[in-house]
Write a protein that binds this DNA or RNA. Structure first.
Lengths: 233, 233
DNA sequence: CCAAAAGTGTTAAGAGTACACCCATGC
DNA sequence: GCATGGGTGTACTCTTAACACTTTTGG
């Protein structure tokens, strides 16, 4: 029943979907341009084969840092893509990760074995290699869902951020208008933001107070079984 | 920087965490007894190497059917476990799946390359091979969470079930008491249960009406962006 | 003083929670 | 008629949702 052709010879890779938030309405995604076949010249998620002696998480982190200069503030496993025909060369099973960074804290560069590294707006992605468009769709869906029950969006903002930044970030990711007053009330009710003495003055209008997300307090609450939730935003 | 030792030679497997609900308070899990080393004689999740020409999902389904006789009603990818030292023989990356079945619809048997197949109460598991206890912990956590926002628990019940069965199932999985009246009101408010004309008469007490979960209606609502939710049950 | 963005409170409707008695059956 | 489990309603509290004006700054 088993022909030799069916014997296992499967490559294992990791791929990373890294989101960065630039400014109002601009959620971007980190892509690399391939300089080898197949899909040479096309854009793809950063990723590579997993080495024998490295854990999956370490493999993604290293790959990201070495090939693009990024160390994401948030990184978690997304889903594993393993259909038979995803790569024309070999059977490849890829463990995809979802990461969040504040791009202003990380300067990206292209490693020598990559043609280029660039941020792309999620609304204007180039044609992607392999099944990477599907992976990105899954990642976006997860991100949209997850910011509603876990306070992970802060990883996309500056350490000190204005409340309107958070509000715009949520609007951008969810793609809906939200009621400013109710949103603020809800977020504030969790008492997870520390107010700083600093103000953001930018363009016209009244300057805004800056806040810092209190990671320690959040971890504490999480252990007590607390759950963050923003209903339908 | 790369020694030959680091070159990739990784095996890819799938493992399945299959839950079955027997009766009040008895959530069980399907395990097989290994008859080869390592961990010979120990119990483990059903699983095996993925063949070159089969998708991951197909691999789990086939493995389950061939080795235990089960075709789960609900099956989804859980998480991928790939730490370096999970298997003493080789580097193995395992894509774990979470499945739900009604055990009375599936008679289990042990395939020839397996010592035995058995259901175990989740509260009384034997010592498990590899890192399978960790996989099970992740699966249980996911199940507890997921029944609160997706109506998947019905896959564990008979097609026609009494309301109290559902209630006990939730109590068993979540491990908390729930208010019968409020629970019923909430579930009924989704209008996803069709009442049948049949009654369940069993032991003493008033017979109970039997219901059927309306899959089609649920799929329809899901497409409209409907979300099922049972708050903290 | 005008434009722009930040900051703020109240009310009405809906959802969640707590709680106890009657009903239908078997023995 | 009693023991067992099934079936049901109401009042209170808390959360959500809708909604608009004042404040602070720069130009």
């Amino acid at each position: 029943m088993e022909s030799p052709k069916e014997l296992e010879d499967i490559k294992v890779t990791v791929d990373a979907v890294i989101f960065g938030y630039f400014k109002k309405n601009d959620l971007q995604l980190l892509l690399i341009q391939r300089n080898i076949k197949p899909f040479k010249g096309d854009w793809a998620l950063p990723g590579r084969l997993v080495l024998n002696n490295e854990n999956l998480d370490d493999a993604v982190k290293r790959e990201l840092y070495e090939k693009t200069g990024i160390r994401p503030d948030f990184l978690e496993q997304l889903y594993t893509f393993g259909n038979v025909d995803r790569d024309p060369r070999n059977r490849v099973v890829s463990i995809a990760y979802l990461g969040l960074v504040n791009p202003s804290y990380h300067k990206v560069f292209a490693d020598s074995d990559v043609e280029d590294v660039q941020w792309f707006s999620v609304n204007q992605l180039p044609k992607l290699a392999f099944d990477h468009q599907i992976i990105i769709d899954v990642a976006l869906k997860r991100l949209r869902k997850k910011i509603q029950y876990q306070p992970i969006a802060f990883n996309l903002l500056n350490e000190e951020f204005a409340f309107s930044d958070l509000e715009n970030l949520y609007k951008t990711i969810i793609g809906k208008e939200i009621d400013r007053r109710n949103f603020r009330k809800k977020i504030m009710s969790y008492e997870l933001l520390n107010e700083t003495n600093n103000l953001k003055k930018e363009g016209s209008g009244r300057p805004s107070k800056l806040f810092i997300f209190n990671q320690e307090k959040h971890r504490g609450l999480e252990e007590e079984g607390f759950y963050f939730e923003i209903k339908w935003v």
